[in-house]
Design a protein around this nucleic acid. Structure first.
Lengths: 220, 220
DNA sequence: TTCAAAGTGTAACATTTGTTACACCTGAGA
DNA sequence: TCTCAGGTGTAACAAATGTTACACTTTGAA
């Protein structure tokens, strides 16, 4: 079985080709051509939608850390699984196909039945939701820090296990600035100030926390 | 049965006094005195903790919209239910009792068993998580808008169903500024500029959207 | 090695927001 | 009615961040 994105394996596990696929599961598969409007903002979300192949464009928040704006989702992934069970179960944004798209649609009742009959699926579903909540909480913490230095401190303290330990970031300044939601030169300025203040040291993409206590004071 | 906060009813439903309380459920109830450290940041979270009575202090993000900082949680509410099923199932913050506290503790295995055996409980659990995710997503959207005018626009467009319709806010400027995470005079300045620009009108606490299209352009 | 593209450091200036301070208004009680 | 506390409008200034521009460095491929 193809395994692309570890986080979404459990949804990819639901696959017609799978021997384990429940034979009595009620579901539909819908195909969309390129540039079709799949869901409109405000549409009722009464089924679990799993993007099986292709890619779509939405404006939701994603695991990658991007906010709002246009967002591209690639198969295999569920579409807005958080909205299936919420009280206000309506799509928050438009969903449009970017290419030929295949969507597996399992009605809410069936999802519930599937979960009660297959504890492993239920646990995977729960884990997914839990991970997403945790991600959102983290992201929210980061964004709620007002100053750029504070964001940097939060991020570096999370990365560095120990004071004085050196670690390599696989993001460049531009990506880091996007992640923080700030302008690139502003990030560079803050970084160089923090180096001057002796809080951290940077050599290429190798970062070292020199003064963890000082960093913590920036978190406000 | 006491029903304090509608969102948490389903957890309050699990109550020893309840006729419906499952007789074979394995659980423990722990009592804490005032100012005891209940959980420490990094502690393993392998059970569903429900605060049955009393109140505790934490630093998590809450439904009320407050970010980080010290947060007070009053019974009945679960403590960090999102972390029970997440891959990184550790408490993100310290939890300390503010008064005498009673905590119902259901092991993870038992929670799973309870959910499979009682679909209504499962659905309530799912709905709670879904609502929380939706809340966090909303909050994140708001925070990811950089300008104060943008935040105001986002908020007012959400409140106003129609252009030209007048509605009353039950928050004063100070509360609104806290909600947006900005300084009060800055909010007032932005509001009065938006009134001057003809986007909205304000009379006491009655707000009217005059130019919805113009507001949408502020969302960037 | 050479060269172009991407990444980085930094400066000058513009813009936005925060801070502080104070005057005014409004409404609930004495 | 008076009074006072909370809420609001606004101004002057400070601080942080964004914008634009450009030179330098690193990297990777020809």
């Amino acid at each position: 079985m193809k395994r692309i994105d570890p986080e979404w394996n459990h949804f990819h596990n639901i696959n017609e080709d799978d021997n384990d696929f429940p034979t009595d599961l009620k579901y539909t598969i819908r195909l969309y051509k390129k540039n079709e409007l799949i869901y409109r903002q405000g549409d009722l979300c009464d089924a679990l939608n799993i993007l099986m192949s292709g890619s779509v464009k939405t404006e939701m928040i994603t695991e990658s850390g991007n906010l709002m704006g246009i967002e591209i989702i690639k198969a295999p992934r569920p579409l807005a699984p958080a909205f299936l069970f919420s009280d206000n179960n309506r799509f928050p944004v438009d969903v449009t196909s970017l290419e030929e798209v295949e969507i597996l649609r399992i009605p809410k009742d069936e999802v519930i039945r599937l979960m009660t009959s297959r504890p492993d699926f239920m646990q995977q579903f729960l884990t997914h939701n839990a991970n997403r909540t945790q991600f959102l909480t983290n992201r929210l913490q980061l964004l709620s820090i007002k100053t750029i230095k504070g964001k940097i401190a939060h991020f570096l303290l999370e990365q560095a296990n120990e004071e004085g330990k050196t670690f390599t970031l696989n993001r460049n300044q531009t990506e880091l600035a996007d992640f923080f939601g700030v302008a690139r030169p502003s990030l560079a300025r803050s970084l160089s100030e923090m180096v001057q203040e002796g809080l951290i040291s940077i050599k290429n993409k190798e970062y070292t926390v020199l003064n963890a206590k000082g960093l913590r004071e920036l978190l406000v």
